[in-house]
Design a protein around this nucleic acid. Structure first.
Lengths: 134, 134, 134, 134
DNA sequence: GTGGTCTAGACCACA
DNA sequence: GTGGTCTAGACCACA
């Protein structure tokens, strides 16, 4: 199930794109899995079909999904999808880090923030799959 | 001097708020320094006085600056201004990192991204050369 | 219906904020009730849309309402909205009382003033007849 | 010594009027006491002489002080000065209480707020003079 | 001079 | 349609 924040500055269709990307990365959506139809998805999420449509169009442009007229939309089998989505995330992190650096924050402060999120255990965990609780 | 991107999705007044925050963190604006008047700043930046006004009012609400009607606007003497601005930056980084983690990126991948920005030299240097304690 | 005093020292947008707060406290506006659109409200009140917009944005910052771009503005469902608004009122009273105390007015004089407003009947009635538990 | 809040919504000259009124009520300024000259007072307070002038003019209009051209300004000997100043304070309290009542706050809530300021001891203290600590 | 408020009207993305 | 941003320009009290 997907949670959207209607009040967020980030447009709903952007949130939706991000959420679908996450589900792919989490393996909950696999290549050639079918996405809900625009109309059903919109009803499910309580948003306008145009909004879902726009998200799908963007995702198709980015080769994350492909659409078959009259059939539906599917996760792209493209082997690089994961890599591409990861790269997007990395870019967002770098962008925030660059701004912080421009503001004179030290590398240590940033590393600290990363540890705050990932925990400080010595094992270099990969953060993937099931969330292991040591 | 401040550069604004009039085409950016980020509103002009938000850009201006960010820039002023950066100048405070860089030490180029110090407590009780007077900011340009709403009108002068607007003329200088090529934007409307109301837009500067909006930025100033937001900054005042956040206790970054204080305004005295009939006198001018000044950097807040609040001893925690720097801390608060740093905290804002850190939060933006954490937010990006949390999203990346949710997408299964590993801690190492994030740390790598941080190194990409700050460099990989062993010394734990700060953002710029000014404050390193080595 | 809302009456504004265009001559008042209190800015129109502040008056509007107060009025909306009152309507919430009086139960005439309930959580998730939709407020008039910025344009319609402005037309209704005979003021500029920007002025309504400013009131709405302030109320949103204070978590009294929330706005969804492209949809409308709504009373916040926050369970504490009433409490918060009451607290605001109480603070204004306390502020006036403190100033009076600083000027050497006696407790009895203040209590008298309160009775002048609420009446002197022994029943501890509430503000209007609606909520008394007797 | 007088503290002014340059950032307050209340104009400085209004604050100054209030402060002088308080000092009269506290007995620190007595009938025929001389007030500082406009220029000296302004320098002392770090504000514009025009502002002091405006406060003095208002106070003279209200018969709180009287001015003698070429000599200076003095606290009015008028026997009703205290009563008048008290009345002003009472009116401010009533105004806040009326607004609270309009917002459905109960008499008890207001009385409580008054007790919060004056304390809850049974003795009907007058609040005057030195602040007795029972 | 200064900041604060307000109007009139435009354009935008989004729903 | 909606809220959000921005411009251009006015007037205000205050300093």
């Amino acid at each position: 199930m997907i949670r959207l924040d209607l009040q967020s500055r980030l447009p709903i269709y952007e949130q939706l794109k991000n959420k679908i990307g996450e589900l792919v990365l989490l393996g909950e959506l696999k290549p050639d899995d079918q996405l809900p139809s625009v109309r059903n998805f919109a009803r499910e999420l309580g948003i306008n079909p145009n909004t879902v449509q726009k998200a799908y169009q963007d995702l198709e442009r980015d080769k994350i999904i492909y659409s078959v007229a009259g059939r539906g939309s599917y996760i792209s089998p493209d082997i690089d999808v994961t890599k591409q989505l990861h790269e997007q995330q990395i870019q967002k992190v770098k962008s925030a880090v660059m701004q912080a650096k421009a503001c004179n924050l030290s590398k240590d402060q940033i590393i600290d923030a990363v540890y705050d999120v990932y925990g400080r255990d010595t094992s270099h965990d990969s953060g993937n799959g099931t969330y292991e609780k040591i």
